[in-house]
């Protein structure tokens, strides 16, 4: 098991390396440089800037410097903000993103799994149909549509919750963004869970458990839950990725000062350094989350665990 975890960890290295390399070359191959704006800069200024950002060195050397910096946690300068480099900006935004994303993740997993089990046990009865409708809503309503709807209902019409802003991190400011972020994933996870649970409940070993006279509780919890969780667990890695990208929209709509908003602003202002730095940061985060999920997955499977 430990060996497995180690091996799995080693596989993340080429992933990250490829990701960083691809990003670097996309950036360097971009038509014009980062400083070819609408108004051409005076040549001397441009040269100064390029020297400052190492753009005048050969490509290979630039690449080496870049990788070296990334490895030290230096994601490079922001081309538009002189005061903060990329890493510093990310540090500013990170807590907000983590709180919103983390809360949404936990809620999505918890509610998704519970709803999925519920649907499987009551399948083709009314609780299942209620669930199916909620799932459907979650699947077809993109977060950028869900957000204004929620703002309209809970913020404007009912006036229960603020339509945006961070407040001081008060709960009522967080509720709506977290709900918008979590709902699509509750839908996806419960759909997966329901399907997997139904399949497991049809398997031979559940028939054996029933023939032993066990009640539904122990059958579901002890015999069915673990195998039924497998597809859900393998979805958690990608789900974390989707949540991060989803948080970009949510932060923008609700005006939260997280990484997503920096990212969007940078992208709209063509701040390559910031965009690239953020993408790399996101990727490291997602690759790490995937790693954790895979190890968790292996732990659930006794055949892998006993190796």
């Amino acid at each position: 098991m430990l060996l497995y975890a180690l091996k799995r960890f080693l596989t993340t290295i080429p992933v990250l390396w490829i990701a960083i390399t691809v990003c670097f070359f996309i950036l360097r191959l971009s038509p014009g440089g980062p400083f070819d704006g609408e108004r051409p800069l005076p040549p001397a200024v441009k040269q100064n800037l390029e020297a400052h950002y190492n753009l005048d060195k050969p490509l290979v050397q630039q690449y080496a410097i870049y990788v070296g910096n990334v490895l030290q946690g230096d994601l490079g300068p922001s081309f538009t903000s002189e005061d903060f480099n990329v890493a510093e900006q990310l540090k500013l935004g990170l807590p907000y993103t983590i709180i919103i994303g983390g809360a949404a993740f936990i809620i999505a997993v918890l509610f998704g799994i519970l709803a999925g089990i519920y649907g499987a046990l009551w399948r083709n009865a009314w609780p299942d149909y209620v669930l199916a409708s909620i799932i459907l809503l979650g699947l077809i309503l993109p977060s950028f549509l869900l957000a204004p709807i929620f703002q309209l209902i809970f913020g404007v019409e009912l006036g229960w919750l603020p339509v945006g802003g961070w407040g001081d991190g008060e709960l009522r400011y967080i509720v709506l963004p977290v709900a918008v972020l979590a709902l699509p994933h509750i839908a996806r996870i419960s759909r997966l869970m329901r399907g997997a649970m139904i399949e497991v409940l049809h398997s031979n070993f559940i028939r054996t458990a029933r023939s032993k006279g066990l009640n539904t509780g122990p059958i579901v919890l002890r015999h069915a839950l673990k195998p039924a969780l497998m597809p859900v667990v393998s979805y958690l890695g990608p789900a974390a990725g989707y949540l991060l990208t989803g948080s970009i929209v949510v932060e923008t709509i609700f005006g939260l000062p997280g990484i997503g908003r920096y990212f969007i602003n940078a992208a709209l202002n063509r701040d390559y350094g910031m965009v690239l730095g953020t993408v790399i940061f996101y990727m490291v985060l997602i690759v790490m989350l995937n790693l954790i999920v895979d190890i968790l997955y292996a732990w659930l499977d006794p055949k892998v665990r006993s190796q």
Binding site: S203, N204, F205, R207, T208, A209, R222, H223, K226, P227, L300, D301, P302, K303
Partner: peptide, 11 residues
């Protein structure tokens, strides 16, 4: 049952 492998809970 017929198939003793799938009839026992694997985990």
């Amino acid at each position: 049952f017929q198939d003793p492998l799938t009839s026992l809970t694997p985990h």
